[in-house]
């Protein structure tokens, strides 16, 4: 469903993505792990064009997205076309990024109404179902500031789901949470994985990766060092760098 080919991205002289090739099939849960600064988040942000890679291409359902390449020169798609692709790929952020001036309900129905042009009552009905699913049925009229971090993140997941996305990108979604609030967010994500949602998950939660992922990708210095089934990555990694990384994070 998502294919990434030869992605290179620089921040100044820093080579943050150094030739990434990755493909994700429908229904797969791919967890991306690796030390901070390894390019995991940047890779995720390239997939919905929040970052523009220098070279490489991204295909969604076999379609080249965001730009074309004619004779080695990139020609960006129109802003409207880029927005239309983004509407099909959900994203959940480390710092939630809920809209503080809208209620939880307002946050969820905003894009379905103004981007997908769904009727207001249909959007509300769907939002109510989603709030039920993430356990926030009683928080529809609350503002984000009134919620705990875990509740805000579950609302953000509901907001992404309201667009009926083909896939959702999770960018370290539990890293900003107090430890006791991590589980409630992971529980929602497990449920989505069971329901067959295609998910790309950048995470430091090794247990989640081990139990939920269909595939784990280990990144370091802008490269994919190793990708494999979770039991293989965690029990018998082939690469020394993977072993070193896992030892440091699992020995805590």
């Amino acid at each position: 469903m998502i294919e990434i080919e030869g992605l290179h991205k620089y921040f100044g002289t820093l080579h943050v993505l150094d030739g990434i090739d990755l493909s994700v099939a429908a229904g797969e849960v791919v967890c991306i792990i690796g030390p901070s600064g390894s390019g995991k988040s940047t890779l995720l942000r390239c997939i919905n064009h929040l970052e523009t890679p220098e070279t490489g291409r991204i295909l969604i359902d076999g379609q080249r997205v965001y730009r074309d390449e004619v004779g080695g020169i990139f020609r960006a798609h129109s802003n409207r076309a880029i927005a239309a692709v983004r509407a099909q790929v959900g994203m959940v952020f480390q710092h939630f990024n809920l809209f503080p001036h809208l209620t939880v309900m307002g946050n969820i129905i905003e894009a379905p109404i103004h981007v997908l042009r769904r009727p207001k009552d249909a959007a509300r009905r769907r939002a109510t179902e989603l709030l039920e699913m993430v356990g926030l049925a009683d928080k529809a009229t609350s503002y984000p500031e009134e919620l705990s971090g875990g509740q805000q993140q579950r609302a953000a997941i509901a907001r992404a789901l309201a667009m009926d996305p083909k896939a959702i990108l999770f960018d370290e979604v539990t890293s900003a949470l107090d430890p006791e609030l991590v589980a409630e967010v992971l529980a929602v994500m497990r449920r989505l994985a069971r329901q067959g949602m295609t998910m790309l998950v950048v995470t430091h939660e090794m247990n989640f990766a081990r139990q939920v992922a269909s595939r784990v990708v280990f990144m370091d210095h802008g490269k994919i060092v190793e990708e494999d089934a979770p039991e293989r990555i965690f029990c018998a990694p082939r690469e020394q760098r993977t072993r070193d990384f896992l030892r440091t994070v699992l020995d805590r």
Binding site: A83, R86, G90, F93, N97
Partner: peptide, 12 residues
Amino acid sequence: GQHDAAAALGMT
């Protein structure tokens, strides 16, 4: 973050 969230939802 607000710009990112809006863009990620497909807003122009």
